[in-house]
Design a protein around this nucleic acid. Structure first.
Lengths: 340, 340
DNA sequence: GCCTTACGGGATAGCGCTATCTTTACACCA
DNA sequence: TGGTGTAAAGATAGCGCTATCCCGTAAGGC
């Protein structure tokens, strides 16, 4: 129960030695028994495990990390914590890794390459067993840190075909293209793209451009990018701004549901009929989208599935297993609702 | 740049020994110089720091933790990651602690006491320097773990007056009471309370009950609690359900903005006029609330400020400084919009 | 019967740091 | 001049674990 007490140690910590003593084996046997490595007679394993359980023993991760030069930590770097999509992702990653006995260290890069590099340097000093990073937009230093660390790394949200690179995500650009093609199929011709600049949004922008160029309808002045982080507020103001500049637009593709929600609210307030006058589309399929007036047409992305599968892939990599599907495309789904 | 190379160590890691050698001092002097403890001549400190910088040395946290029996980690336990309010809180905590050189370990208790106890046991084995936990709703075991660990702990979101307990939050119950009193002041008499059960929501419920009892208008059948996690969807269905049971209600206080949004959307769809037929109020002041139809009356809570101040308080505690304000009430603000 | 091989178990030596004690150097006072 | 105090640096010994080497014992081969 209590961790101080019968041991005479300076730190008062309950150690493997105590467990070993109780099980009447040597420390190293206790170590092996608890880790399930090496050859230990089943009977001894049971005795050690019982002793550990009775004493409520928890191994010291620091000592373990120092001795083995491997921690049980997995570092996850996300661009922001302030985002429902990140929440879904982290929740799923946590769920998988924690049950497997790993600790999850979360780093928030705030969409900054410098910050990401700093965090990598920092977190890698923890000798994490694994690494999950968001996308591929990082500087050379950061790339080098990941590569030279030798720590298994899974990239999430985006896809890449580079050999030796593991990733779980979706083709953001294709998803963007799908949405624009859908708008085109509905007869829209003057389609704008509005985004809060972030790497994924820029990939969606590529898809947007490709689709419109293929249709011969691309007009670069119809792209509106903002450096501010996405929010409903921002969507509202970008929407107004865009309408002033381009009153003739018949559709707007927002890089992000938040922005689209702001636009929908503004449209409702200003009496602009959606989708009759203008179609509005978002991206990510946040829960609110099903309830807006009108409900939002968007692209569904399975953040939870990405998190889960990325964590599982990382587990396999950390165990040294062969991963025969290094690129997992979880796909996306066009959610057609009334707004477009 | 690279971490392998000139050192002859088995792990290939760049160690303090390398730094010491380069600065031509002993390891322990290098250690002291880098940590800024003890007496080291300024000239040597500079030499060591230069050497460390040139080698791009990053101390091994595991070794440090083992030797000093203190890590540089701070554990934060939150009830969910899937929530904008949690995002704000974590973002702020991260911002403060990371710049001070601490690592932030996030644990997600999923609103479960058992899970919290498990996580505490686990994370405490990391010898964190500090602990931030959400509220006070935990089992005896968990309470004991925190107390006996001797790790400085700050409680967030709720307040308590127990001596020796540090907390940063707001009086949830008072905030709930304030909202109900406001509704009463607007002439509402048949006020319901709808919540997704969580400890904070239950405190708000207390405030709700108190206010109504004081007004002699309390009716327990007007409380609707759901075990499911809060969502717009849930709010929508609870709203419909409640109206069937109590068609005469003139106001509903939702424990949570998400739920209120669902209600507003449903009301709009069903042609129920808000606030003429029924007033709707929420809690937390999420960004969406300013844009709903009609805009949502709610209670603003400063999650970011709570996170920031909690982190600062924890810093002070970890440094052994005296904290003369162990209970920080960041307050709340009644945001009056059209929905009530 | 001796040697090999395999297996179960233990002894030992660190992992990279820091707490603690000890030593050295030098100023100060009687 | 010798003793003493103190600052500055180093030597030493772990922190709690695991990698590695080593030693018995038993089974199997010739």
């Amino acid at each position: 129960m209590q961790r101080n007490g019968k041991t005479g140690r300076a730190t008062g910590r309950l150690t493997l030695k105590d467990v070993a003593a109780r099980a009447e084996v040597s420390v190293i046997t206790a170590s092996r028994a608890l880790r399930g490595v090496g050859r230990v007679a089943p009977e001894l394993v049971a005795r050690v495990k019982d002793a550990a359980a009775e004493l409520n023993y928890v191994p010291d991760p620091a000592a373990r990390a120092l001795a083995s030069s491997h921690s049980s930590a997995v570092t996850v770097l996300v661009p922001t914590l302030n985002n429902p999509a990140t929440g879904d992702l982290l929740e799923a990653i946590h769920a998988v890794l924690l049950t497997e006995g790993f600790q999850v260290l979360i780093g928030d890069t705030h969409y900054s390459r410098e910050q990401e590099e700093y965090l990598l340097r920092n977190y890698l000093s923890y000798r994490p067993r694994g690494l999950i990073v968001t996308g591929f937009d990082r500087n050379e230093e950061a790339r080098g840190l990941i590569a030279s660390s030798g720590v298994p790394c899974v990239h999430v949200l985006e896809l890449a075909n580079t050999p030796g690179v593991y990733c779980v995500g979706l083709n953001q650009s294709e998803a963007g293209r799908t949405m624009v093609n859908y708008l085109l199929s509905k007869g829209r011709r003057r389609i704008a793209f509005v985004a809060a600049v972030d790497p994924r949004a820029m990939l969606r922008a590529e898809g947007y451009r490709r689709a419109l160029k293929e249709a011969g309808l691309y007009d670069p002045t119809r792209e509106l990018l903002s450096a501010a982080p996405a929010s409903i507020q921002l969507g509202a103001s970008l929407f107004s701004e865009l309408l002033v500049r381009h009153p003739d637009l018949d559709a707007i593709f927002f890089s992000n549901d938040d922005l689209a929600h702001g636009a929908l609210f503004t449209a409702l307030k200003m009496g602009i009929r959606v989708p009759e006058q203008i179609s509005i589309a978002g991206f990510n399929n946040l829960q609110e989208g099903a309830f807006t007036i009108p409900p939002l047409t968007t692209i569904h992305t399975s953040r939870a599935e990405i998190g889960r599968r990325a964590a599982q892939m990382l587990l396999a990599l950390m165990r040294g297993e062969k991963v025969d599907e290094p690129v997992v495309d979880v796909g996306y789904e066009l959610i057609i609702r009334e707004s477009a």
